[in-house]
Amino acid sequence: MTDGTNAGAAAPNADTHLEAPSAPLERFVRLCVPLTGFSAFDLHGTGMAPLYLDTTRRELGEGHLENFLSRWEQAQAEGKGPAELPPTEREIARALVYLWYTGAWPRIAPAVHAELRRDRPNGESMASATSYPEGLVWRAFGGHPGGAKPPGFGTWSYPPPTLPTEAEIAESITQSAATATRPYDPTAYGALANLLDEESVPPHLLPGACVTRSVPPSAVPCAAPPPETGSGSPAKDVSER
């Protein structure tokens, strides 16, 4: 919905829209990072960022969306958190997080629904059939979405994974932001590959020839018999990794 009264609010940023086609999306994702607690890398990685921007635009209208984004940008500049936003923006921030966490646009507080004068019913709806498996809530507890991305037979018998602390999450977001600005550098990967040259992995830790598919991985012989005990430190190093 394009709301005539809010068209002016969108205009000042028209220049940034023109700078690069992906700029509004970059901005949307960047502003969602502190709301969701997931890095821009993670958010882009869901593959849902363009859909969610569209969904939010459709649910709120271009004007209200722009209003929200600029206010949230301003609040951040003032060192405020999302909980300190004015009520309407706070509820929109919650709806956005809900969208990222579940793949669905939620039913929002009726007061905000009325204030925004939305042209659609205030109900919960899945952004798309593909958005549900990309919900971040499943990742938040180290799980997987019910009915998608199954972890394999018997995995449920194991203890749940240890979750990162709040500080670790914040740290990973900062790190991700730092690396994300760096352009793709193939030599960086080349350098990494150099760390593991052919000699550094002893043959007895590599699998031998797998003759047929009927041979289970556990039965595939090693490329070489294991060395005598205490034969050399490189092998030990690698196995400890």
Partner: peptide, 19 residues
């Protein structure tokens, strides 16, 4: 139908929700 106060966001939300 009014907007609630407070609420968790960001790393704290992710952490507490997961826990």
């Amino acid at each position: 139908g009014e907007v609630r106060h407070g609420g968790y966001f960001g790393p704290k939300l992710r952490r507490d929700l997961g826990q």
